[in-house]
C-alpha cells in the first residue's frame, strides 16, 4: 500500500475545503448562509454514520437514536436543569457514548441483515421512550430552548450562538474538528483494520485482530460523533422533538453518505449539501411543472436512492476516486 504519496494531497485538499467553507461565511447570501450552518451540522451526523457504514461496513438503520441521544442529552439538561451550553454539549456527547457502547455490545453480536434490523428495533425503542417520558420531553411537540440560553459566556464576553455568523462558525468548527478526526482515524492503523474487517472479517480475525473490539470502537466513535451533531443541532437551532428521532432520520444519513460516497472523508458533506439543494430546488420546479401532485421529499429521496444504488453504488466521490484520484481518502 502506497499511502504516503497521497498524504500531502489529502491534507491540502482538506485544508482547502475548510478554507473555502470559512470564505463562504463572508460571501454567501443570508439564505444560503443559514442553510449551510444547518447542513454542516447534519454533515457531521453523516460523517459519524460514514465511519461505521463506509469504513467498517456496518449498515445501521437506527442511527437516529444516537443523534437523538445528543439532542435530548443536551436539550433536556438545558431546558429542565438550565445547564450552560458547554456542559449540555458534554451531556449530549456522554449520552451518545454510553448508548452506542450498550447498543454496540448487543447489536455487534449480529451481522449483515440481522444487524440492520436489530439497530432499527433499538431505534424504535428509543423513539417510543421519547413518548413514554412525555412529561419531560413533550413527545412529538418537543421543546424550545430559548434564545438567551443558547450562548456561551467567558467572563464578560458573551458568545451568542443564535447570531448567524457565530452560529455558522460554531457549526464549521465542529465540522472541521470531526473532519480532522475522521481523516486521522481512517489513515491510522485502526482505520485500516476497519476496512480489513469490511472486506473480509474472517481473514482479519485470523490475522490476530480482535474484530469485535475494533467494531465496538468504531460504533462508539460513530455514536459519539452523531451525538455531537445532535447536541449541536439543539444548541444552534433551539428545538428538540421526537420527529428528529424517527425512522426517517435513520435513513437520511444513509442517503447522504451513499450520495456523496461511502468511505470517503468528504462524501458526507457533498451528499448532505447536494441532497438539501435537490429537495429545496426541486420543490419549486415540481410545483411549477407538476402542480397538484404533492411531490415531496418522499418521491425525490426514493428516486435518488434507487438511481444511486443502480448506477452510482459508490457515490459521487467514490466514483471520482475510482476514475481520477486514487489517493482520495
Amino acid at each position: 500500500m502506497k499511502n504516503d504519496d497521497g498524504a500531502g494531497k489529502a491534507i491540502t485538499l482538506h485544508a482547502g475545503v475548510i478554507a473555502v467553507l470559512v470564505a463562504l461565511n463572508f460571501v454567501l447570501p443570508d439564505y444560503h448562509h443559514g442553510v449551510m450552518a444547518r447542513v454542516l451540522v447534519l454533515a457531521v451526523y453523516a460523517m459519524g454514520y460514514n465511519l461505521l457504514f463506509g469504513y467498517a461496513g456496518l449498515l445501521s438503520l437506527g442511527h437516529a437514536m444516537f443523534f437523538a441521544a445528543g439532542l435530548y442529552g443536551a436539550g433536556l439538561t438545558m431546558y429542565h436543569l438550565n445547564w450552560g451550553v458547554p456542559s449540555a454539549f458534554i451531556a449530549g456527547l456522554v449520552a451518545g457514548v454510553l448508548l452506542s457502547l450498550v447498543i454496540g455490545v448487543l447489536a455487534l453480536r449480529t451481522k449483515g441483515v440481522a444487524f440492520m434490523i436489530v439497530t432499527m428495533m433499538f431505534a424504535q425503542v428509543a423513539y417510543l421512550l421519547v413518548y413514554y417520558f412525555g412529561t419531560w420531553t413533550r413527545g412529538d411537540e418537543g421543546l424550545v430552548i430559548q434564545q438567551q440560553a443558547r450562548a456561551i459566556e467567558f467572563g464578560a464576553t458573551r458568545l451568542d450562538l443564535t447570531d448567524p455568523t457565530t452560529r455558522y462558525m460554531a457549526a464549521l468548527l465542529l465540522f472541521s474538528v470531526v473532519l480532522v478526526i475522521t481523516l486521522i482515524v481512517v489513515r491510522s492503523s485502526f482505520g485500516r483494520v476497519l476496512v480489513a474487517i469490511r472486506e473480509n472479517e474472517e481473514r482479519t480475525k485470523m490475522l490476530g485482530y480482535d474484530t469485535f473490539a475494533n467494531k465496538l470502537a468504531a460504533m462508539v466513535a460513530s455514536g459519539a460523533i452523531c451525538a455531537a451533531a445532535g447536541a449541536a443541532y439543539v444548541i444552534l437551532f433551539g428545538y428538540v422533538g421526537s420527529t428528529l428521532a424517527s425512522v426517517q432520520y435513520s435513513i437520511l444519513p444513509l442517503l447522504w453518505v451513499l450520495l456523496g460516497g461511502a468511505a470517503t472523508t468528504l462524501g458526507p458533506l457533498v451528499g448532505t449539501v447536494l441532497m438539501y439543494y435537490l429537495i429545496d430546488g426541486s420543490s419549486d420546479l415540481l410545483k411549477a411543472y407538476l402542480p397538484g401532485w404533492n411531490v415531496s421529499y418522499l418521491g425525490i429521496v426514493g428516486v435518488a436512492l434507487i438511481l444511486l444504488v443502480l448506477f452510482f453504488p459508490k457515490g459521487l466521490l467514490g466514483t471520482v476516486r475510482d476514475r481520477f484520484a486514487r489517493w482520495l481518502p
Partner: peptide, 22 residues
C-alpha cells in the same frame, strides 16, 4: 459581542466582492 466578523462586515464584504464574485 460576536467575536467573528460582525453582520455589518459580512454585508460589506459582500458588497466589496460584488455580486460577480458571489
Amino acid at each position: 459581542s460576536s467575536i467573528f466578523r460582525k453582520k455589518i462586515s459580512r454585508r460589506s464584504t459582500l458588497k466589496g466582492l460584488g455580486a460577480t464574485a458571489a
